[in-house]
Nucleic acid binder design. Sequence first.
DNA 1: CATATTACATAGCCATACTAGGTATCTTGT
DNA 2: ACAAGATACCTAGTATGGCTATGTAATATG
Lengths: 124, 124
Amino acid sequence: MAFDLENWKTQIRKGYLELCILTLISREGQIYGFEILSQMEKFEMPLKEGTLYPLLNRMTEDGVLAAKWETQGPKGHPRKFYSLTAAGKKLLWGMSEEFERMVSVTQNLSKNERRKKNDEIHTA
Amino acid sequence: MAFDLENWKTQIRKGYLELCILTLISREGQIYGFEILSQMEKFEMPLKEGTLYPLLNRMTEDGVLAAKWETQGPKGHPRKFYSLTAAGKKLLWGMSEEFERMVSVTQNLSKNERRKKNDEIHTA
DNA sequence: CATATTACATAGCCATACTAGGTATCTTGT
DNA sequence: ACAAGATACCTAGTATGGCTATGTAATATG
């Protein structure tokens, strides 16, 4: 409701988590959900199951990820492994490019001092 | 509906635009809405009026921004100038810190090669 | 055999960006 | 004088993704 830092941190994660997770899958080649959770925690960007699984299902439905079940022999819960499709790799590339652009915009905004029109401020 | 790059670009802007705009206001000291639109366009991060004005009103209601109307003498449409409150400065600081953290996480995710089990990668 | 851990899944809530419109004032061309 | 465009702000409604809370199963452990 109120505009506080915690709420903002939730908002800024939208889209960003997908970039992180696609990057992680790309790096690992293939990986299953629970392992993503622990890796993301290791990288100090933890997320909840209720965030991850809908995200993975969405991206699988949309042809960004390929999923296959693997049983762990006689023991262990079966795991659903995800990997990038060709479309997924292309998407990740586009996302990385845009994110870098965003980073450079914030850097420019912070850095560039306003030089032109010192006089204009007095308007009137 | 579909998971495409354009939709993602909309999502990733959530929260990010607020960081940009607070940074811009901080830099300018005070600035009015229409000028924000043209500055953001100059920095290659354009946004629509329907995005900006609700955002400014929200942040004003929540005590992040201070707003005051200024008439342009006998000529010109009156302008609503925004500046950061103390709470706004504090919020911007927290947001910048978090954004930098996010950037470093993506860098680590992209960079760090998986060293353990090299053999596993070459399979097939 | 009860509890914890591993592992995946979904319904419902909420905040933000976008689309598409609206109002009002001032400038410019004819 | 009047139409068109630029300046300037505003809002209702929609779509989307992250979060909370909860559920289901299987295996491991004391």
